[in-house]
Amino acid sequence: MKLYVAVCRMLLGASLLVSANVHGGEGGEGFDWLKVVIFAEHQTDYSGVFVYQYDNHVETSRITHVVDGDGENERLESLDGPKREIVRHHGRVLGHHGEELPQVESPQGIGKFPSLLPEQLAALSANYQAKLLGTERIAGYDAQAILFQPRDGLRYTHKIWVHTDSGLLLKAAVLGSKNQLVEQYAFTQLQIGGKIDRSWVRQGVVAGFHGRDFHKQHDTARRGSPTNSGWVADALPAGFAKTMEIQRPMHGNHAPVIQMVYSDGLSAISIFIESDDGDEDDVEGLSSRGAMNLYHKVVGKHLFTVVGEVPPHTVMRVLDSIRHNGQ
């Protein structure tokens, strides 16, 4: 494992040398670690228990991630409160709330292998300052701590702790403008590699989802399709580049919803546009959970919803700048 990561870091380091002029070397090593994290996350088998915390809320969950010939399989189970479970296979998502059937499926294609593109790296260093902090022990492993401090007040500070051997993310904290903790995620126990139970990948999942076999289901009508709707938001913070725009089904059988996703490499903002169905719940409102803020508002005949891991004023600002191009 060590050797594998060392080689991986060397390769990434070499590619970074080429693009060193893009981000001027400043905090380059911090962004280098980010690439390692993304790489390791998709390639490593692991199973562990983590704590997720925001406001006065503390919750424990177990996550298991195994890679097989078919791709990545992942299971997230809640250990506190009512039983909830989310299973991802090839980037497709099935949610499981108690006895409820899954509601949302990922339109993402099979074989997705995300990584930071050079232009995203350039945007990252333009908008965040990366600082390598010391090493700390997290869940019994040595971790490198890295701080990503935004250069404007429109995004949060991110602090991550990366396992120095495997490159896995062991802990992540989102901090507000006064360094107050907005949310935190940290492993308390983690097994990396070795013998990890994968019986759930076929049996458990299929049984758990009332016989729905997600390996075979390819109902394209229920998945999203790329679109270009002509909607724009002028007040997106600098460095947020559009990563996709799709039309997707949501809320059961309602008319399709347009989703536009923008990312600055560390956080993303989604804009949802749908026709207003006169639901009384849809009047203007701001809500939040941890680093996630959601703002929705009926404008004319449309319901706009903006969601992202950015401060409340940013989602509000983005929503208020939405307009249809050429109108």
């Binding site: 980010l34 994290v37 993304i38 996350e41 983590f50 997720y52 809320h57 919750e59 969950s61 996550i63 991630h65 992942e74 299971r75 997230l76 809640s78 506190d80 409160g81 009512p82 909830r84 989310i86 991802r88 998502v93 949610g95 709330h97 991550i160 993310l169 992540a172 995620y185 959970r289 941890g290 996630m292």
Partner: peptide, 13 residues
């Protein structure tokens, strides 16, 4: 970066 761990945000009770 964290795999599905952050999906906990969507099912946090």
């Amino acid at each position: 970066m964290s795999g599905g761990a952050y999906y906990i945000r969507t099912v946090s009770y």
